[in-house]
Nucleic acid binder design. Structure first.
Length: 717
DNA sequence: AACGAGAGAGTTTTT
DNA sequence: CTCTCTCGTT
């Protein structure tokens, strides 16, 4: 069955999809069917005779590219496994590995994740003996931040310091030296950080014309998603990859650029026409995601930007609930108000159709507490990475050493596991191992039997080169006793994490690929497909490109959103504004903004009043329905000017009346809330009383159910 | 040199 | 809460 492009796509989308060859830029407004357009274009290329192996799709996450390829494959009724898809970083890695000999990495190399990189920066600082005992000296996280920012923006360290870290100006010279030492250490130990992957690929393609020729011959069509969030080196890579055929399709939205902090440069998308003269430009402006009331609000957000955006988003979804602004007494009661709102939204939506978004990871803590208390399942995105947990890194260090014998970070990690070996000895032993000083190694090994064991293990991994699963098995076998000793209290939890890691490794056949993916992708995200119904908690950055029927955004107060650190420079404030725009445009049907009137200040140990976020203050009153938290945590609508006081706003009223079920949860029943038992479902936590005679219960193994009271056996508190 | 206790500080966003 | 750093002891 041929694909019907005319009926499946609107004219603008069809224009982008049917564009034959040569450079193409698609400016895709939020919710304008961007993914659909990419998917259809992929299908179209193949239908027109392009071989899948000639296609390269670069996206922000690997998951995104896999999904797009899967959808295209579904349209075509044929597999597309030969097509390449992934992030810039994973693509760069694959090419560096493929051409390792040309690139100078014939002896293997390792990708450092953030914690490796901070460790190495600290090492650089210590080697230079800088900032000893100086409390004001920037700490390792800041050091790496500055070094990486300079790299990403391709500016000198002192320029970055002068522009963004004025208070560190006295240290500018020290910081430059640290950056230099850090680079030297990486080089000496075949370690590449995220930035290096991109720069090294560029260096390879520029220095080796035959490599470039091979690469451009292989990928004759290059598609790049989220082009507004590419940095300078990524743009140059796209130019290189385009080759002479220039079959480049870049897709993005300048109004959604939210990664300037890490060097993304909106100029890339704005200058696409100059970079690729003669490029076709298509704008997608019809929004298929949100209702008009939501778009009215998001349009307002953009209109107030310092820098004007040429956006005319429109939709045919004219009706829908007004967005709501909920004012709560404090950030603590905000968490309860979110629960209250959640139980209302649950009448129309499954849990996984609802998302709570926030500016920074820690802002969801109070809410997580509340969710745990009530036993509501949730999944958090953008928090700590599974693979950065200490025990995971310990085990992976052994595999890394099998791949890259010079990996200093891994050596230190592995060696410090031995009792009696601290930083100094570890460094000495590591140096000996790297330089092949057998005498020194033997001397130390004699003193510490466990050290001999480690060396033997690494030797074995290196000689046998087992599959990742087997290698992990060996490493975990060695590590388990150490884990028990190190974490007597919570070793079962960590053991579980190791099992999970084993599971992740199963599909891989070689160590290098497994290790690269562990550093370059967040494996936690892979599992969400198999995950059952759970509320989504996410940072706004991690929510990019996603959508939900109902979206709640919390902590819309000054200093938190926009973040305090963004209030220095006007361009930073604009980025915060775009972030707010991205957050609100995730919503399909319902959008709820939470504005606490006070927040807890840790060091003062009390709540302090706060001003609402300017992004809320500037919204005209007719854009939203105001809701206020009253005594006992009840939410009630506030009539707008000229409106007759209403008991309940339409959006607060039940949408669907279920027989025998009252619309509003009875908070007074809170006293009765505890645990209960059901004959079939077993033990569960009572979440909500639904008058007159039902309860919403979260069962340990069956999830949320509404049950008539007579079938429940109450437990006394 | 290594280790453990204990205080302390601090949390933007991510490949 | 959860690393991270410091300090005193072995």
């Amino acid at each position: 069955m041929p694909i019907n492009y005319d009926t499946d796509l609107n004219p603008a989308q069809a224009a982008a999809v049917l564009h034959e060859s040569g450079p193409l830029l698609v400016i895709a407004g939020a919710g304008s069917g961007k993914t659909r357009t990419i998917v259809y274009r992929l299908a179209r290329l193949v239908e027109q005779g392009t071989q899948p192996e000639n296609i390269l799709l670069l996206t922000f996450t690997r998951k995104a590219s896999q999904e797009m390829l899967a959808r295209a494959s579904h349209l075509l009724h044929r597999g597309l496994s030969q097509a390449s898809g992934g992030t810039f970083h994973s693509f760069a890695y694959s090419q560096l590995r493929r051409f390792a000999n040309f690139a100078g990495y014939g002896n293997g190399f390792t990708i450092m994740d953030r914690s490796d990189a901070t460790g190495l920066v600290k090492e650089a600082r210590e080697r230079l003996a800088l900032g000893k005992g100086d409390k004001a000296f920037p700490k390792r996280d800041t050091l790496l931040e500055i070094v990486s920012k300079a790299r990403n923006k391709e500016r000198d360290v002192d320029q970055v310091v002068a522009a963004e870290y004025i208070h560190l100006l006295p240290y500018a010279e020290d910081l430059s030296r640290i950056a230099g030492e850090y680079a030297a250490l990486k080089k000496a130990h075949a370690l590449l950080d995220y930035d290096d992957l991109l720069f090294e690929l560029e260096r390879l393609l520029v220095a080796e014309p035959q490599v470039l020729a091979q690469v451009t011959a292989r990928w004759r069509h290059v598609m790049v998603d989220e082009y507004q969030d590419t940095n300078l080196v990524q743009a140059r890579l796209v130019k290189l990859l385009a080759g002479e055929e220039r079959n480049v399709c870049a897709v993005g939205d300048d109004a959604q650029s939210i990664y300037a902090f890490r060097g993304a440069n909106v100029a890339n998308i704005l200058a696409f026409g100059q970079t690729f003269p003669g490029a076709a430009i298509v704008r997608l402006e019809q929004n298929y995601r949100s209702t008009q009331p939501i778009l009215d609000l998001t349009n307002r957000i953009l209109e107030n930007a310092r820098e004007k955006y040429d956006k005319h988003l429109f939709t045919e979804r004219a009706d829908g609930a007004l967005p709501e602004v909920v004012r709560t007494i404090s950030d603590a009661s905000q968490a309860r108000a979110v629960m209250e709102k959640l139980s209302e939204l649950r009448r129309d939506h499954a849990l996984h159709e609802i998302a709570v978004l926030f500016r920074a990871g820690f802002q969801s803590y109070p809410l997580e507490l509340e969710l745990n208390k009530l036993g509501v399942p949730f999944q958090k995105f953008g928090g700590i990475r599974f693979t950065e947990a200490a025990h995971i890194k310990d085990v992976l260090a052994f595999l890394r050493l099998a791949v890259n014998p010079a990996d200093l970070s891994a050596w230190r990690r592995a060696l410090e596991l031995v009792r009696g070996i601290g930083p100094k000895t570890a460094l000495a032993v590591a140096q000996a191992a790297i330089t092949g000083d057998g005498a020194t190694l033997a001397k130390h090994a004699k003193k510490r039997p466990a050290l001999a064991e480690i060396l033997a293990l690494i030797e074995r991994l290196r000689a046998e080169r087992p599959e990742p699963r087997r290698a992990l098995d060996l490493a975990i076998g060695f590590y388990t006793p150490i884990l028990m000793e190190l974490h007597p209290d919570d070793h079962p939890r960590r053991q579980q994490g190791l099992d999970e890691l084993m599971g992740l490794s199963a599909p891989y056949r070689d160590l290098e690929s497994f290790l690269a993916d562990v550093s370059l992708e967040n494996p936690g995200e892979e599992e969400q497909a198999g995950r059952e119904d759970a509320l989504v908690l996410s940072t706004i950055h991690s929510a990019k490109g996603l959508e939900w029927p109902a979206v709640m955004i919390i902590d819309l107060v000054e200093d938190r959103f926009p973040s305090r650190r963004a209030l220095q420079k006007p361009e930073d404030l604009d980025e915060e504004r775009r972030l707010m725009y991205v957050a609100c445009t995730r919503a399909r049907d319902r959008l709820v903004l939470f504005v606490p009137e006070s927040i807890y200040i840790r060091h003062l140990e009390r709540h302090e009043p706060v001003r609402p976020s300017p992004f809320v203050l500037e919204l005209p009153r007719e854009c939203y329905q105001e809701v206020r938290e009253g005594f006992g945590g009840r939410l009630s609508a506030v009539p707008g000017p000229g409106e007759r006081p209403a008991r309940l706003d339409a959006s607060l009223a039940p949408r669907r009346d279920e027989p025998g079920q009252s619309a509003t949860p009875v908070n007074g029943a809170a006293a009765r809330m505890g645990f209960c038992t059901h004959k079939i479902y077993g033990r569960g936590k009572i979440i909500e009383h639904i008058a007159p005679d039902k309860y919403r219960v979260n069962f340990q193994n069956f999830g949320l159910k509404v049950i008539v009271a007579q079938y429940l056996e109450m437990e006394d508190a």
